Amino acid sequence: MTGWVLMAEAARGPFVESQHFGAAAIAGPEGIREAWGDAGRVILPRSAIKMIQALPLVTSGAADAARLGPEHLALACASHQGAEMHTRRVADWLDALGLSEADLRCGPQMPSDRAAREALIRAKETPTQLHNNCSGKHAGMLTLARHLGAGPEYHLPGHPVQIACREVFEALTGAPSPGYGIDGCALPNFAGRLDGIARAMAWFATAHEREDARSRAAVRLTEAMMAHPELVAGEGRTCTELMRAAPGAIAVKTGAEGVFTAILPEQGLGVALKIADGAARAADCAIAALLVRLGALDAKDPAVRRRMEAAVLNRRGDEVGAIRPATALG
């Protein structure tokens, strides 16, 4: 596990049963303040940097031309669970553009929202692209493509939309991306150094101190996420519950394969972490612990405790262990 350090462990009774290793970095405007493991390693940030991908939507003027409000911008940064409150808003957004679900390129996905999933099963219907957890981001990219007069295949790496996303990603992380992997929603996901991603989150956190167009766009996106945490993820989800635990103080975003980012505007700090084995339970635990360490969250808050002391239950519902952060994160 070269370059990785212990981030979380699962205990059953007095025994440590599983361990999750990873790396993390906390950045301020001056650079990296704290790091765990090899924070210089290159990762695929997945959905944890959707706020970066949404910047061209705003800076181009496309968001204002389409009269997008905070709810739209929150959805553009979202990995939602396909609940009715998500799919309805995305459908209305596309309709206002004169587009439809067929114009999306994210592919269908069974919703993780239980009510939406069961409604589809009862109706013997299949999920649509609106249910895809990235449909809000794709609606944003369609909006940008329309504004630029570019073609409909906005998901291709050489499309002007993706070129704009790559340029801003490289600018904020401070280095050229060495390449990309195709994400679950068919978009290129540009790779970058973990510490560079933390610095990008710190840039978002200090955007309110600047007046340039890109910084003003970052403020709008961060404020939209904090104002509508239920649209960024959904009920019961870590992003939503942690933002609700500190209203207006943090914006947090998960990404597949154990990635998490956080923006702390009041402190001017950014956080990025990656769990080596991709375990979401460890990423949830670690991001909560780091935000408690920074004073942004109260360790006694029920939503925080559910992540930092996640109960391990047996089939009877008895608590027989817990998932806890590594002591180095405290």
Rank of each mutant, 00 (worst) to 15 (best):
M1E: 15
A8W: 05
A10I: 14
A11H: 15
R12W: 10
P14F: 06
V16N: 04
Q19N: 02
F21S: 12
G22E: 08
A24E: 11
A27P: 07
G31V: 08
W36R: 06
D38W: 10
I43N: 00
I43W: 08
S60Q: 00
A62V: 00
L73S: 04
E84F: 14
M85I: 15
A96F: 11
G98N: 07
S100A: 13
Q109T: 01
D113I: 05
R114Q: 14
A115G: 06
R117D: 13
E118A: 12
A123C: 05
E125C: 00
T126M: 10
N132W: 07
N133P: 07
K137Y: 10
T143L: 07
L144H: 05
G151K: 11
H155P: 02
P157C: 04
P157S: 09
C165R: 11
E167G: 08
V168G: 06
E170W: 03
A171F: 07
L172V: 03
L172H: 00
T173Y: 01
G174C: 06
P178T: 02
C185F: 10
A186M: 11
R199M: 13
A205E: 10
R210P: 00
R214Y: 10
R216I: 06
A217E: 01
A218H: 09
A224V: 05
A224F: 03
G236S: 05
T240G: 01
G248N: 12
A249L: 13
I250T: 00
A251H: 10
A251P: 02
A251S: 11
G255C: 04
G258N: 09
I263L: 08
I263C: 06
L264N: 02
E266Q: 13
A272W: 01
I275A: 08
D277P: 08
I287T: 00
I287F: 11
A289T: 02
L294S: 09
G295V: 02
L297C: 11
K300V: 13
D301G: 06
R305A: 13
R307Q: 14
E309R: 15
G317Q: 05
E319V: 15
V320Q: 09
P325I: 04
T327R: 15
A328P: 11
L329Q: 06
